[in-house]
C-alpha cells in the first residue's frame, strides 16, 4: 500500500505523519495518535460515534481518509476542553445525565458543538436534525436534547 506524508492540525497542534493511503482518519487518530476518545461503532458511516470536526464541520472519521486531511484542521473530543475547563456543552451533558454507556457521547458532543458554533439559538427540531446521524441506544435522546438546549441558553447568556 502506497504511503503519503501528511501535515495537519489536530486539536490545535501541528502533526506530521506518514500514513498508508487507505488509512481512515478514525484509525489514524486512534491507533497512530492514541486519541481513543473518538469511538468506532460501525465503520461504515451509519452510527456517528466517530464524528470529529474537519475544518469545523462534523464528519464521520471512519469514512474519511487520513490523506484527505492533509493541510486541514481536525478537532476531536479531546480538543474541546481548554486549560482544564470543560465546554458548557460538556458540563451540561454531565449535569443533565445526558449519557449512559457513553459510547455515542463523544460523537454526539462533536455534532452538537458544530451546531452551536454556527447556530446560537437552535430550535428543538434543529438540534434533533443536527444529531440525527448520531445513534444512541441508551437514552431515547431526551436528556441529550435537553443538555444541548441548556448549553445554548448558557452560551447566549454569556454573550449577553
Amino acid at each position: 500500500m502506497h504511503k503519503s506524508m501528511i501535515n495537519l492540525t489536530i486539536n490545535g497542534d501541528e502533526v506530521d505523519a506518514v500514513v498508508k493511503d487507505n488509512l481512515t482518519l478514525l484509525d489514524f487518530l486512534r491507533d497512530q495518535l492514541g486519541l481513543t476518545g473518538t469511538k468506532k461503532g460501525c465503520e461504515e458511516g451509519e452510527c456517528g460515534a466517530c464524528t470529529v470536526l474537519l475544518d469545523g464541520l462534523p464528519v464521520n472519521s471512519c469514512c474519511t481518509l487520513a490523506v484527505e486531511c492533509n493541510g486541514r484542521e481536525v478537532t476531536t473530543i479531546e480538543g474541546l476542553a481548554r486549560n482544564g475547563q470543560l465546554t458548557p456543552l460538556q458540563r451540561q451533558f454531565i449535569d443533565k445525565w445526558a449519557l449512559q454507556c457513553g459510547y455515542c457521547t463523544p460523537g454526539m458532543i462533536m455534532s452538537a458543538t458544530a451546531l452551536l458554533n454556527t447556530n446560537h439559538h437552535p430550535t428543538e427540531l434543529e438540534i434533533r436534525e443536527a444529531i440525527e446521524g448520531n445513534l444512541c441506544r441508551c437514552t431515547g435522546y431526551a436528556k441529550i436534547v435537553e443538555a444541548i438546549q441548556a448549553a445554548a441558553a448558557e452560551m447566549n447568556w454569556e454573550e449577553a
Binding site: T36, I77, I109
Partner: peptide, 24 residues
C-alpha cells in the same frame, strides 16, 4: 433527588474513559 452526577460522566464527555477497544 438529583444531588449527584454520574461518577464516570467526566471521563465520558472528555473521551478519556477507557472501553475495551481503547486499551493499547
Amino acid at each position: 433527588e438529583n444531588n449527584y452526577v454520574r461518577i464516570d460522566a467526566e471521563d465520558k464527555v472528555t473521551g478519556h474513559g477507557q472501553y475495551v477497544g481503547d486499551i493499547m
